[in-house]
Design a protein around this nucleic acid. Structure first.
Lengths: 206, 206
DNA sequence: TAGATTGTTAATCGATTAACAATC
DNA sequence: TAGATTGTTAATCGATTAACAATC
């Protein structure tokens, strides 16, 4: 919004900062330096200072960063100072596992509806959420104000689900299926493909 | 091995190429150009050519890349031309979901053993694999020739599990727990944290 | 004041993209 | 031959790191 475009690399680090800051807050640590953060998170302190400086002057020279204040600021930057509703399509094993993560998403984001194509799944309940037919996606997503979609269906179905999400006005998608999605440029897609991850790890074996 | 150090960005794209090439092979496509690959995978064709050229001259000018040959080459580069044994620690929902992915890992990698700390889980069977106590990790990992470890335990346990993996001689770790691991530099760690991923997505909401 | 640490500029490093000769 | 496409060099772009004045 202000001026300089923020790189994806920076945005990806912010949640990592946030996570550790939350730990510090729990331990009632008041203040932390970029040095200490860097040590804990395996990052260069200059990089951390620069990342934060894109968004404002959050620290105090000679002192460091106030933990509570920085948490507040990062949550605001990440738009996590509001509740964000998430939909999940694919009630298989992975979908079920992810829907258990609601507790870790804290009060920032929440999976509020789950869809599946299989009649055997529809009507069952996962974490107090009733699985609904995919045909209901558009209506439910709009009614519940869902802004983020998660795809945990087989690769062959992923593009179809993405289309439905886009149609329903979802703004961002997290895709666990091993497939590249084609979506309008205003919709943000991130990929979380377990097999790709493992395969690239193999490269580093001796 | 040859000379130029390959960047992580390049290594991360190789499995994506491989995945699509496998699809092409299934459709009995003989040949593919960097142009066509780029279109499908949302990547710059020059980047694809450059990535591949780090490892050899795999294409034919005027023609493109032979699909079968390129698959063979990439599998070799990624060390996926041998079976790689994987261990998983944490038989919770996510661990169970991942162990189902064995079929997608094809004949390159295989989860061969599963561990958990909870007495309730030990002795149960997931996908024909008996869950074993964490105390057995070192011995089993060595006996079975496990080279890669997956961590799907709570964050508070992750470092402990990582230490055990390192101790047992595992060469690479895929960590799903929301924690930064401290391991010797010769052990490669990749992170796959679902909550971090979702939180960074939130930034791109309007 | 002395010591610590930020915010920021400049320097370095690395990755992506464009362009094109080579050649199938 | 004409058209297509690679491999590779050069140009561009972007991200990381070092350094240091400002200042708590």
């Amino acid at each position: 919004m202000k001026g300089p475009k923020i790189s994806e690399a920076v945005v990806r680090r912010l949640p990592i900062y946030l996570r550790y800051l939350n730990e510090l807050a729990l331990s009632e640590v008041q203040t932390v330096s970029s040095q200490a953060l860097g040590q804990k998170l395996d990052l260069n302190p200059a990089q951390i200072r620069k990342d934060l400086a894109y968004f404002g002057e959050f620290g105090k020279k000679g002192i460091g960063y106030d933990v509570g204040y920085l948490i507040e600021k990062i949550r605001h930057i990440l738009k996590l100072d509001q509740m964000i509703h998430v939909a999940l399509v694919g009630a298989g094993n992975l979908g079920q596992a992810l829907s258990n993560y609601n507790k870790y998403l804290q009060d920032n984001m929440k999976i509020v509806c789950i869809f599946d194509a299989s009649p055997a799944k529809i009507g069952t309940t996962i974490n107090n959420i009733e699985v609904q037919p995919i045909g209901a996606l558009q209506q439910v997503v709009q009614e519940m104000g869902v802004r983020v979609g998660i795809i945990t269906v087989p690769a062959s179905e992923a593009q179809n689900v993405a289309n439905r999400f886009v149609q329903a006005g979802v703004e961002a998608i997290l895709n666990f299926a091993p497939a590249i999605l084609k979506v309008p440029s205003e919709v943000r897609v991130h990929y979380a493909d377990f097999t790709t991850e493992l395969h690239s790890l193999a490269y580093y074996l001796d």
